[in-house]
Amino acid sequence: MPKFDLSAIGFLVLDTLCAHADAMPPKGGATFVEQMTMTVAGTAGATALDCAMLGLNVQIAAEVGHDPMGDWLVSEMASKGMNVDLVSRSSGAQTAMSMLPISSDGARSAFFVPGASNTFTLSEPAMEQALDADIIHLGGTGLLASFDGEPSRKLLERAKSLGRTTVFDLILANEETIGLVEPLLEHIDYFVPSIEEASAMAGKSEPAAVAEWFRAKGVKNVVLTLEGDGVFVLPHDAEAFQLPAHQVEVVDTTGCGDSFTAGLITGVSKGWSLRDSARFANTVAAHVACGLGSQGILKDFDTTKKAMNDWPLKELKQ
Rank of each mutant, 00 (worst) to 15 (best):
residue 237 D to E: 15
residue 301 F to E: 14
residue 295 Q to V: 07
residue 248 V to Q: 07
residue 288 V to P: 00
residue 280 F to L: 15
residue 245 A to E: 00
residue 227 E to G: 12
residue 264 L to W: 03
residue 301 F to L: 15
residue 307 A to T: 01
residue 256 C to V: 14
residue 270 K to T: 02
residue 293 G to L: 05
residue 295 Q to C: 12
residue 246 H to A: 00
residue 263 G to I: 02
residue 261 T to P: 01
residue 230 G to V: 03
residue 251 V to F: 08
residue 241 F to I: 04
residue 290 C to K: 13
residue 267 G to A: 08
residue 253 T to I: 11
residue 230 G to C: 06
residue 290 C to Y: 06
residue 257 G to Y: 07
residue 287 H to L: 06
residue 232 F to D: 07
residue 276 D to Y: 07
residue 289 A to W: 05
residue 274 L to G: 12
residue 305 K to V: 13
residue 245 A to L: 00
residue 241 F to E: 02
residue 226 L to R: 14
residue 270 K to I: 05
residue 278 A to Q: 08
residue 252 D to M: 05
residue 306 K to H: 11
residue 301 F to C: 14
residue 309 N to A: 13
residue 303 T to V: 07
residue 267 G to K: 08
residue 265 I to T: 13
residue 258 D to Q: 06
residue 258 D to E: 12
residue 251 V to Q: 05
residue 270 K to D: 11
residue 270 K to S: 12
residue 234 L to S: 00
residue 280 F to V: 09
residue 239 E to W: 01
residue 237 D to T: 13
residue 310 D to R: 11
residue 248 V to K: 00
residue 268 V to T: 10
residue 232 F to A: 11
residue 253 T to W: 07
residue 300 D to G: 11
residue 294 S to E: 01
residue 226 L to I: 03
residue 306 K to R: 13
residue 274 L to K: 13
residue 310 D to S: 12
residue 280 F to R: 04
residue 253 T to P: 06
residue 273 S to H: 05
residue 264 L to N: 09
residue 272 W to Q: 11
residue 275 R to K: 14
residue 251 V to N: 02
residue 296 G to P: 08
residue 228 G to K: 12
residue 236 H to C: 10
residue 239 E to M: 04
residue 304 T to I: 04
residue 234 L to M: 07
residue 231 V to M: 01
residue 274 L to W: 06
residue 259 S to G: 03
residue 278 A to W: 00
residue 278 A to C: 15
residue 256 C to M: 15
residue 267 G to H: 00
residue 251 V to A: 09
residue 247 Q to V: 00
residue 308 M to L: 09
residue 272 W to F: 03
residue 288 V to Q: 05
residue 260 F to R: 09
residue 298 L to N: 03
residue 245 A to H: 03
residue 293 G to T: 12
residue 300 D to A: 08
residue 311 W to P: 12
residue 241 F to D: 07
residue 263 G to F: 14
residue 276 D to I: 00
residue 281 A to N: 10
residue 280 F to C: 07
residue 297 I to N: 12
residue 284 V to C: 05
residue 279 R to C: 07
residue 255 G to I: 10
residue 253 T to Y: 06
residue 291 G to M: 08
residue 278 A to T: 07
residue 233 V to Y: 08
residue 227 E to H: 08
residue 250 V to E: 06
residue 283 T to D: 06
residue 257 G to K: 02
residue 245 A to Y: 04
residue 236 H to R: 15
residue 304 T to H: 12
residue 250 V to P: 04
residue 256 C to A: 14
residue 227 E to A: 14
